[in-house]
């Protein structure tokens, strides 16, 4: 399966707010730890190396 870079998440504004809320009041270090867990949880859920590799590449583009 290819990485889906088109709109895919209903209520993305709501998720974005939830993401910010999860980080609210955290230090930079605590935020980094939360993000790391999130990435690992989502990576396992996606379960497809090709999709994850494409995501790594896209995220690394400058």
């Amino acid at each position: 399966m290819a990485l889906n870079t088109l709109p895919n998440l209903p209520d993305h504004d709501g998720f974005y707010a939830a993401l910010l809320a999860a980080h609210k009041g955290l230090t930079a270090e605590e935020s980094a730890a939360l993000n790391a867990e999130l990435i690992l949880i989502l990576a396992n859920h996606i379960g497809d190396r090709a999709v994850l590799d494409a995501a790594l590449t896209l995220a690394g583009q400058r």
């Binding site: 980094a32 730890a33 790391a36 867990e37 990435i39 690992l40 949880i41 396992n44």
Partner: peptide, 20 residues
């Protein structure tokens, strides 16, 4: 270290992370 510690923490609450 951030990711290593994340795996160790997750291992306590999610089965998938134990194998990591």
């Amino acid at each position: 270290r951030v990711f290593r510690d994340a795996v160790l923490r997750l291992a306590g609450k999610a089965a998938f992370a134990r194998a990591w």
